[in-house]
Each structure stands twice: as structure tokens, then as C-alpha cells.
């Protein structure tokens, strides 16, 4: 790898990839990409490429994991061995298990899990290429896949990170900024209900900076939310066009 760049933000206020401080990376969302899954979505967020498949609600196996009063969500976050510059062992690492849990917990408040007791939903997240902010991109895509599976939801969950790089609060950190920057704050958010479902912080921020970062991430989420809705509608648009 190259040497560490001296400055992550240049004199003009532009970042390493030429973005402004409050600019998102280019985003592409697609719904219903896997015919074998009940619901699926694909996201390209900057250089991140993530595929999500949802199966269920179906009978829980093993049976003892099912709950008598609600639907259980299981979530597997996995990075492909070719997703990072150095080969990653395909065995689930500590980090991946943790991210699976974090993503599951950020999705759970959005689904009506008391409607179909004793069932289970499996969410499989496969990171094909990683470039910082995979947990956020995964949440955005997983939420779309859940909606595509026809699971009743309160709202779509959108996630976006903000952080601190070179004394400045910036939106949507990429890999280098994440590693060389000061702090990273991923936020998952339900825009219609104005509710945060995930808030993490890695690094050191003052209370003022944290507040600024959260607000910035929420604004980013709103922008992604519009694209998310658009992606979901596009799949069914063909149906509507015939009607008109």
C-alpha cells in the first residue's frame, strides 16, 4: 500500500476522492435480483458491492430457537474472501458475527415481528467488495430486501455514517478516511418515523462534534431514503405503466 497521505482534506475543502465534506459517494440500488430468495437487494455504495437475500418468514430450524410470541430474525453478515485487498479467510470472524448482530438489531425495530409468531426470517448479507461503511450499506440493502420479501414493516431503515477527518466532520467515510481519520459514527435511521435504530461511535469526538455528525448522517440517510424508495418502486413500475 502507498504511504499515508499527509492531508485527507485539501485546501479547497475536497477529500481524497474529490468529494465535498457533506457529499455522499455514488449510490446504486437494485431490488429483486435473486429469483431463488423471497426478497433480495443489491447495493453499490462507492466501491462497496453488497448482495442481500432474505428467506422467510418460514418455520424456524432448529425448532427450539423459535419464539412462541414473535417472529425471529437471523442475520448473517459475511465478507467474500476476495472482498478486500488481502485475502480474507472465509470463516466467520469475530467482527462478522458482531456486525451480523448489530445489523439484526438495527432492522428489528422496523418489522412487525409480533404478527407471525413461531416463524423465522433469515437475512444473508454477502459483501462482494468492501470499501468502508459496509455495515451501513448492508442495513440499507437488507431493509429493501425485507420489504421485497413482503414482510410488514414500520418503515424502511436507511443507514449512513459520518465522522471526523482532519479536524472536520464529514459525511459517508470511505475506507482510507475510516482507517486514518479520527472518528466514525454510523447511524441507522427510519426517516418517516424520525427514529434512530443504530448509533455507534468509534473514535473520540466532543459532544458538539458528535451532535453535528449525527445530524449530518441523518441528512445523508434522508437522501439515501429517497433512492431506496425509488429502487423499490422501480421493480413494480412496469406494472403501473401498463395501467396508464
Amino acid at each position: 500500500m502507498n504511504e499515508k497521505p499527509e492531508k485527507l482534506i485539501d485546501k479547497k475543502g475536497l477529500r481524497l476522492d474529490g468529494r465535498k465534506i457533506d457529499e455522499l459517494r455514488p449510490l446504486k440500488l437494485e431490488v429483486g435480483v435473486l429469483p431463488n430468495a423471497d426478497g433480495s437487494a443489491y447495493i453499490e455504495h462507492g466501491k462497496n458491492k453488497i448482495l442481500v437475500g432474505v428467506f422467510g418468514p418460514r418455520e424456524m430450524h432448529p425448532k427450539h430457537l423459535s419464539m412462541a410470541d414473535r417472529m425471529v430474525i437471523r442475520c448473517r453478515y459475511h465478507m467474500a474472501s476476495f472482498s478486500v485487498p488481502e485475502r480474507k479467510s472465509p470463516a466467520p470472524s469475530r467482527r462478522e458475527v458482531e456486525l451480523g448482530k448489530v445489523i439484526r438489531e438495527s432492522l428489528e425495530p422496523s418489522v412487525f415481528n409480533d404478527l407471525y409468531p413461531r416463524t423465522g426470517v433469515d437475512v444473508f448479507i454477502e459483501v462482494l467488495q468492501a470499501d468502508g461503511g459496509t455495515r451501513c450499506a448492508s442495513i440499507t440493502a437488507a431493509s429493501l430486501a425485507l420489504a421485497d420479501a413482503g414482510i410488514p414493516m414500520r418503515d424502511l431503515v436507511v443507514a449512513c455514517a459520518a465522522g471526523k477527518v482532519d479536524d472536520q466532520v464529514v459525511l459517508d467515510l470511505m475506507d482510507e478516511e475510516d482507517k486514518l481519520g479520527v472518528a466514525d459514527v454510523p447511524v441507522a435511521y427510519m426517516p418517516s418515523l424520525n427514529a434512530i435504530t443504530l448509533l455507534q461511535m468509534d473514535g473520540i469526538l466532543t459532544p458538539e462534534e458528535l451532535e453535528k455528525a449525527i445530524n449530518m448522517a441523518m441528512d445523508g440517510c434522508k437522501k439515501i431514503y429517497a433512492m431506496q424508495k425509488e429502487a423499490l418502486k422501480t421493480k413494480y413500475m412496469t406494472v403501473k405503466e401498463v395501467e396508464e
Partner: peptide, 28 residues
């Protein structure tokens, strides 16, 4: 899902839910 459909004197029917007097969609 999550789209605001109506506010006030409305009842939630199929695939919708009520929260704080507002009706939202549950499904696409």
C-alpha cells in the same frame, strides 16, 4: 413501507398501521 398515507380521522385497513393518529403503509 413507512409512507405516510393519511392523518387524523382515518382507520388503518389492510397492510397499514396507525401511529399517533397517522396511517402508514406496512407493505409495498
Amino acid at each position: 413501507p413507512g409512507e405516510l398515507l393519511a392523518e387524523g380521522d382515518y382507520l388503518p385497513g389492510d397492510n397499514t398501521y396507525l401511529e399517533e393518529n397517522k396511517v402508514y403503509a406496512q407493505r409495498i
